[in-house]
């Protein structure tokens, strides 16, 4: 199949999030950016699907600036055949979705995979917007997939359970953890990635519908009150009387 995987990059999960003193942006000093973990699963699943079908191509696409190219090379080292970078700052979900839709319509893709959400802005919106822009079905929170190239058997999470369905290609799906295990790039892949195509396309300058005006750190807790391990009645009464949660 011809598969498109949408990759975002996010601060490494161990990052201590600090905002600039004017509160207007993330302080990127010393922050390492990684491929969004859910997108890494999407990429791995795309490779596995094509391996089981014995052919096909996997393209990764990213809306961002040149500083993300090391992550796009990493995606190709993991196994993607090609990368496309749309040269724009990602500022808003609809702006990103519209840019991605432009790329997605330039060529025929049988399957478009996104992550369930990006772990930085936690929007979980781009995949759904993209499906709607393209007029394609959306499988949200995909947990398993097998495909013969025309029809796919999928399972996905729904509130309070799991659904099992069949869907005809092409469609958009957003990937969840259980789908597969991420792949680690090997030396051979890293060598090959150097010569794989990384295409940079200019953005179509879509207008934002939302803007972040400022950021704020979470409020610090008052401190932990220790309760004696031998006195659970005290804990229960604190939870009831003071905290009013039981």
């Amino acid at each position: 199949m011809n598969i498109l995987v949408c990759l975002s990059q996010v601060p490494d999960t161990t990052t201590r999030i600090v905002f600039t003193s004017d509160g207007k942006s993330l302080d990127k000093n010393g922050v390492q950016f990684i491929i969004n973990p859910y997108d890494e699963l999407a990429l791995t699943k795309a490779l596995e699907l094509n391996e089981s079908l014995g052919g096909g191509s996997v393209t990764v696409v990213h809306v961002g600036r040149a500083d993300s190219e090391s992550n796009l090379r990493k995606a190709m080292a993991i196994g993607a055949d090609k990368a496309i970078r749309i040269d724009a700052d990602a500022t808003d979900a609809i702006q990103v979705a519209r840019e991605l839709a432009m790329v997605a319509t330039k060529e025929h893709y049988d399957l478009i995979l996104c992550g369930r959400e990006s772990i930085d802005y936690n929007g979980g919106m781009v995949g759904g917007m993209l499906a709607e822009l393209l007029g394609l079905p959306l499988i949200n929170i995909l947990t398993s997939i097998s495909s013969n190239g025309t029809e796919a058997e999928v399972s996905f999470d729904v509130d309070g359970g799991r659904a099992f369905a069949q869907v005809t290609h092409p469609f958009v799906a957003t990937c969840q953890k259980e789908l597969t295990e991420p792949r680690i790039p090997h030396m051979r892949g890293i060598m090959m990635a150097r010569t794989k195509p990384l295409e940079v396309v200019s953005a179509s300058a879509n207008a934002d519908q939302t803007q972040v005006s400022r950021y704020e750190p979470p409020v610090a807790k008052a401190g932990c009150r220790f309760v004696d391990a031998g006195d659970m009645d005290q804990l229960v009464s604190l939870l009831h009387e003071q905290s009013k949660v039981i």
């Binding site: 601060p11 201590r16 999030i17 993330l26 930085d120 802005y121 519908q209 939302t210 803007q211 979470p218």
Partner: peptide
């Protein structure tokens, strides 16, 4: 609208300006 939401997996909040009243 001005909307407050959690970002960076609860490591911060963002004030989001929604550009348009119906949303």
């Amino acid at each position: 609208w001005e909307v407050r939401r959690s970002v960076f997996s609860n490591k911060g909040y963002a004030y989001l300006q929604v550009l348009g009243l119906p949303c």
